[in-house]
Design a protein around this nucleic acid. Sequence first.
DNA 1: CTCCGTTTGTTTAAGATTCAAGAAATGGAT
DNA 2: ATCCATTTCTTGAATCTTAAACAAACGGAG
Lengths: 175, 175
Amino acid sequence: MNTAPIPAPAPPPADEPRWLTAEEQRVWRSYIEASTLLEDHLDRQLQRDAGMPHIYYGLLVKLAESPRRRLRMTELARHAKITRSRLSHAVARLEKNGWVRREDCPSDKRGQFAILTEEGYEVLSRTAPGHVNAVRQAVFDRLTPEQQKSLGEIMRIVAEGLQPSETGADLPWLR
Amino acid sequence: MNTAPIPAPAPPPADEPRWLTAEEQRVWRSYIEASTLLEDHLDRQLQRDAGMPHIYYGLLVKLAESPRRRLRMTELARHAKITRSRLSHAVARLEKNGWVRREDCPSDKRGQFAILTEEGYEVLSRTAPGHVNAVRQAVFDRLTPEQQKSLGEIMRIVAEGLQPSETGADLPWLR
DNA sequence: CTCCGTTTGTTTAAGATTCAAGAAATGGAT
DNA sequence: ATCCATTTCTTGAATCTTAAACAAACGGAG
């Protein structure tokens, strides 16, 4: 491919940074503004109604969805897309609240399970409707079905590209 | 409207929370994952290459784009979608780095200008190409033109809905 | 002019996140 | 069996963010 004798339509980028076009800049600004506002909005909503930031709430949700309401620390971190360090601190806090407890992993002495407590489950049940409502109001109620679908595809692609988990391809073995 | 004798297709929601459908959940999860990973990725990139987190970088950009490279604190906060408190702390730090300085507003003794210094401008020039590159690589290079356009529209809508600046409509005056 | 609700910006303390470092266990390879 | 690179998870310090409280200046109503 690309062997046809078509003259390059633009000079080779050389060292010039490829700046964003005006339109790309607008898109990017919109993304930054929306994600900043949204994160902020949901953090505030959950801090007020559930006494925890959005990401902590997400951790409880992951646990609630898991078999036996438990997950190894590393797994939970992977699901939630955060570092283990951050998770350690977060779970320490959630433990202090009585919403999560830890348990040793029998098969691997290094391992720890984070387990959603009954209390944690109740906080979740009590606050989930309000949170869903906030998400709906901020996002889904404002978008057409096509836009929702599009958003899903786009974000899936972006997330995919940033996963540390290169699934086999282009592993830099031997360089 | 809605006076036609069509039987309601679904029972009135009563108090039942309107949960997200399975598809909506997938979209929402993708959004959360992508935005978490992206924010993290850019924070790391800029911390490494420019010695500041993404949002601080954004503040310098806003200043650079402004007439006389300055902005009142409140204006800057509004542009960047952050609280004045957060901005106060951020500018204090940027000032310590020599990238921003403050100046009193002559016409309003309460006011302060945040001003991009020459040094700040240089940091920006030096690090902008790498940052643009990171954004491109993570987002624009992976999306079709249609998806880029769609992303812009969607985020514009979401941001719009979260702006504190309700432009006139439905102000709850007298209640 | 004075009063008083609002706006502007900062400060403090508490909480959250990052980064680097490190302890403990694992699982091969020798 | 022993070595050792890797994985798992935690810790402490520095940094960043939030929430609430505050002082100072503003500006319109009376």
